[in-house]
Design a protein around this nucleic acid. Structure first.
Lengths: 256, 256
DNA sequence: TTAAGTGTTATTGTCGACAATTTAAGATAG
DNA sequence: CTATCTTAAATTGTCGACAATAACACTTAA
């Protein structure tokens, strides 16, 4: 559950993308906003450990701000489900868990599936051709860096964002981009997950865009749901494998 | 778009239900919590008009609290999408619109559909029989008050809540019950919508519970989605009818 | 008359201090 | 030695005041 910062500096690009392209993202002007982003980054990257208690006086001193300003930032962190607050007790960084990760995938499957259906209905022809162009770039880059799964991950987020924004549904956009995806990025960092399904994911993206271009909302939703479900099952298998490996190690340790 | 308080006092019951049965709902202890609930009620009922600007000094004086406490309450209102804030400008009550209502239904269809699927997988036998018992009570009460659509609406919320909680998915529960449903109740009040589909909705509820009892997640999701989509289309028709009526009235006014 | 610029007013963001509550430590009884 | 109660420390919630920003009214120039 260690953070792997060097593998995830693309987050900055994605964040910038969110800020410039996401209509629901408000500009960062106030100091509370800046501190919010700093803490958010620290939580996502695991610098502030998952599950740890947050000390208001401590953090306020660390960032050289008053407690009021910090509390404003904490409120926004709570809004995107990165921390949890209890009255008269305090805040804790959300506890990452396998169950939580799977629940997140379930929720994404529902929301992004519907977003994809709406995208098929509501995206403009221009938006669609933009996305097709993006996919071509991904294809080329993939040829260069095939197997690493690194850039593909960036492309993955990029792709999902474009689809979600293409739904033209403010409610969906806000829920997924404004709230859920902070948690997604946190899990990606904490569990060190870069997709080992790069080429398959690329094919799935192609099919989804095709369905959108055909204005086939029903198919588009189904494909997106399968795409996310496949990713979830991939994780489940990986975790199951890790567990059995650990068990075998334990058995060996007992034997020796 | 007037509020119809007398028709909606059942909201208190539902709120109580949320507090006692919803694991994500935290107890109200702090004064900010109390003020939050008061303002929330005022917004939902339309006492504070949809789209109106919120004056921090004004509201603070009105509720006899400091601005800090009020801002704490405003943050929670923002979390459940009842107000929108802009930096250095202020807060506005969310603007109710037909597009917003339809977007909300789309989102509910996605989330509650998936929650229903998960409920079929995860509900305990006891929970299921509880829900079946609840439905029987609804059937009896419906016989008594058939046609009013009033109590049925309470039952409707009750039913949906039970299904959502039955998903045992914290992420889904928090998103739907903790955030979305405040907006749902607001729209219900502001647009004065008590379901005119009482008996049909009851049948749909029955089928859904049956699918859950059969542990048929796929069918359960499909039925729930159709249930919500039917409600949405019902609204769409109603609105379309109202618009044509208005147009005809306008034509008559022009003629006279 | 309209447009841009300027000064005033009001609102929001931030701060430090105090009050209320919880947590921790220590003392006392069993 | 454990458990409970009491007291002390720390943390959170709330308050009022000040600073920074935006909205408004007014003046001036084109």
């Amino acid at each position: 559950m260690q953070s792997k910062t060097n593998h995830y500096n693309y987050n900055l690009d994605v964040l910038k993308f969110m800020k410039t392209n996401n209509p629901t993202q408000q500009a960062v002007v106030t100091t509370a906003d800046k501190v919010f982003e700093k803490i958010q980054h620290a939580i996502v990257e695991g610098e502030i450990p998952s599950g740890s208690k947050i000390s208001e006086p401590g953090l306020a001193k660390h960032y050289q701000i008053s407690r009021s300003t910090l509390r404003e930032a904490l409120n926004r962190l709570e809004k995107c489900h990165l921390i949890e607050r209890k009255a008269n007790v305090g805040s804790r960084v959300v506890q990452c868990s396998i169950e939580g990760l799977l629940e997140l995938y379930i929720t994404r499957e529902a929301l992004e599936g519907m977003a994809c259906r709406q995208a098929a209905n509501n995206m403009s022809d221009e938006e669609i051709s933009n996305m097709q162009a993006m996919l071509k770039i991904h294809a080329q880059t993939q040829e260069l860096k095939d197997g690493t799964g690194y850039y593909q991950e960036e492309g993955n987020l990029d792709f999902h964002y474009k689809v979600i924004l293409g739904s033209h549904n403010k409610q969906l956009i806000e829920l997924i981009c404004g709230q859920l995806y902070h948690l997604v990025r946190m899990y990606r960092c904490q569990f060190g997950m870069y997709s080992p399904r790069a080429s398959r994911a690329f094919d799935e993206h192609s099919s989804i865009i095709q369905a959108i271009a055909d204005r086939d909302g029903e198919l588009a939703e189904m494909l997106m749901r399968r795409h996310i479900a496949a990713s979830r099952k991939n994780i489940e298998n990986k975790i199951a494998k890790e567990i059995t490996q650990k068990e075998q190690t334990n058995i060996q340790l007992i034997k020796s």
